[in-house]
Design a protein around this nucleic acid. Sequence first.
DNA 1: AGTACCACCTGACGGC
DNA 2: TGCCGTCAGGTGGTAC
Length: 261
Amino acid sequence: MPELPEVDTYRSYLAHNVLHKTIIGVEADFENYGRIFEASKLEFSSLEGESFEKALRYGKYCLLELSGERVLVLHFGMSGDVKYYKKGDPDPEHSAMVFSFQEGHKLAVISVRKFGKVILAESRQEFIETKGLGPDALSLDKEGFIEIMVAKRGRIKSALMDQTTISGIGNMYSDEILYHAGIKPDKKVNDFGKKDLETVYEKMISVLKTAIENGADSEKMPENYLIRRREAGAICGICGGKIKNIKIAGRSAYFCSKHQK
DNA sequence: AGTACCACCTGACGGC
DNA sequence: TGCCGTCAGGTGGTAC
């Protein structure tokens, strides 16, 4: 379920499969999935004859740049997926949108819980500005990160998850980052020193990169990652302490009660 | 500017 | 086997 690393695996899947292929059909199931579309049936149909030329990622969004000026933007909500398959094979379950390519394959945009979005934007920049997204977590340098965070109040976990502050981090990876940084998720950002922020930044980058390298597959992540044992009462893989679960801003936060302070 | 809560949906899982 | 409550890694809106 897609935070930045998962979306990056979708991006690379799309880059590998659907670029430079002429779109000859666009079917959007407005009857069942109307709420996820931010464009009309007619506007989607206007993609016929174009092709996807570039697959990019910004935060938790996947951007497919078209041969014309526009960009098709996918957001996966909590249950989205994409699948490339042979023409003639059945459409995957929960397909909200299906693109047909001239060369004989199809691309399905899948949405089980109907939480995602399919957006047709004028440009990458227009999209980012319209959504008010903060800088992508992986494009930030240390100075930029610190500058943004010193302006924040509230709790570190919430700050990391705020997409208008930094784009790409969700519930699970915010926990993972703070777990490696040794900082409790409910600690207030304004109590942080520069050193703490540097640590959070370094762990943010290393956790996200490690996750991408492992295809965002929790089973393949290093043994000492929280994701391998994300349940209350589990034993911490770093210090042997006990993993606890609390609610922060309505979200379920997991942390080690011993080494996170 | 934060936070707390509700809403949107479906599926998986545990308890009975 | 089935029914029921609860929970899930997403965002967006409200009211305080």
